[in-house]
Design a protein around this nucleic acid. Structure first.
Lengths: 225, 225
DNA sequence: AGGGAGCGGATAGTATTACTATAATAAAGA
DNA sequence: TCTTTATTATAGTAATACTATCCGCTCCCT
């Protein structure tokens, strides 16, 4: 059962809104599982259709191609994180404390309570860590940016940047620090598992505590006056 | 004319060493230009062969597939940067100064003197900015890491981390800062041009000065005692 | 109750991609 | 010169990334 939150996304991301129908919800559900399982490069609409007992043509009625499906999932993810940040920081007066909560939310997103039944947020988080950047490293960025495909991410960045500026109004790079926190939360979670020599943090048994500690250290060090 | 530097790469990256033959050098040269032009997803060995007046089968004699070709280019790039850092920091005693030179080298790599005639380093730098991370965000990371495909990048990371530790031996995240400098140098150069709301720096007319300033600010702020 | 409209399923078809195989030719080395 | 090896030319296959058409099933409206 959904707890009633509504993730609103740019409606040009899809041909038919997948949140509205059970086939659409199934596409979301199984695409998350399948991309996580075999990786985005090997993922095809055909394989997805077979896995969910539907047809390729039916999937194409919802998404133009797999790149836009990925963009949809990425947008969904950041919108969800944005929602988590809102409820987790609600009524917290101290900007410092809110920033710490933001960092924890980024790193521990996969441990939050599921919000929507057809989305496995924990798997989605792992997928975003491994495939997320492919959504904007493409020859189509500029066109897609114009249409507003990255607005969720940019708005979240802005939201965090404003908290950063609240902590230290003189810090000259609030947006860059914000986007860097998102990137580092994901990349160092990935490095710790797959390329440990590129980082100093360790992740074992799904324990990302050290990633959080590092991001807090970086942030406080950068924002201390 | 080559100035005689030798870029040595893991020999499992290729089937036949492209540096040894003129066909191989042509593959490197034109693949850089073509990937930069149409993007890695649209890039195929067929298109490359047509562009360089050869055949698909000939390209396949040098590289197993386009993913390994990308890995080759990425390794080449980081090895080249590593070489640039070595000569640029040679005989500089102050670790602080060496770290600044490293940052400048990362950001301004495309402005360095060409080292090898069949590699357009300036285009390669742009390619790495836009496509570089795709080399390690793949389902094959663990296997490829075992074979040593990322050792160039990891060694460079270690080299920079040791300078960081020299500047401040108490800083607990030297490797993470090092890899983050590489990532930020590239990602914020990309953001400044394509997704400016994700950063605070501006890049115009090929002037990346502000990226450098930001990285220096971050680094000094993090390493000050 | 009848008639659309629209959804999803089934099937077919096309151009391109990602290769592998093989024979013929050109170049390079002994 | 003979032999090896590299490169080209050509062909072929399975999978990918789609597009198109038709058909049956639910609704929803009247």
């Amino acid at each position: 059962m959904s707890i009633g939150i509504k993730i609103s996304l740019n409606d040009k991301l899809y041909l038919r809104d997948p949140q509205e129908t059970s086939l659409g919800q199934n596409i979301i559900k199984h695409s998350i599982l399948l991309i996580d399982e075999i990786g985005f490069e090997a993922f095809t609409f055909k394989k997805l259709a077979i896995k969910m007992n539907s047809t390729e043509a039916s999937v194409y009625r919802y998404f133009e191609n797999k790149h836009l499906l990925l963009l949809y999932l990425v947008s969904w993810y950041w919108e969800w994180v944005s929602y988590l940040i809102d409820i987790n920081t609600m009524n917290i007066k101290s900007a410092e404390e809110r920033l710490n909560i933001i960092i924890s939310t980024l790193v521990f997103a996969h441990k939050e309570n599921p919000a929507i039944d057809y989305v496995n947020e924990s798997v989605l988080h792992r997928l975003i860590i491994a495939e997320g950047t492919k959504a904007y490293y493409t020859k189509l960025v500029d066109k897609e940016n114009t249409v507003g495909f990255f607005s969720n991410y940019k708005m979240l960045c802005e939201k965090v940047a404003s908290v950063i500026s609240e902590v230290n109004a003189d810090f000259p790079y609030p947006r860059a620090l914000a986007s860097n926190l998102f990137e580092m939360a994901n990349s160092h979670s990935y490095f710790a598992i797959h390329l440990p020599r590129l980082t100093d943090v360790k992740v074992k048994d799904d324990n990302y505590e050290e990633v959080k500690d590092m991001l807090e250290h970086f942030t406080h060090s950068l924002l201390s006056k």
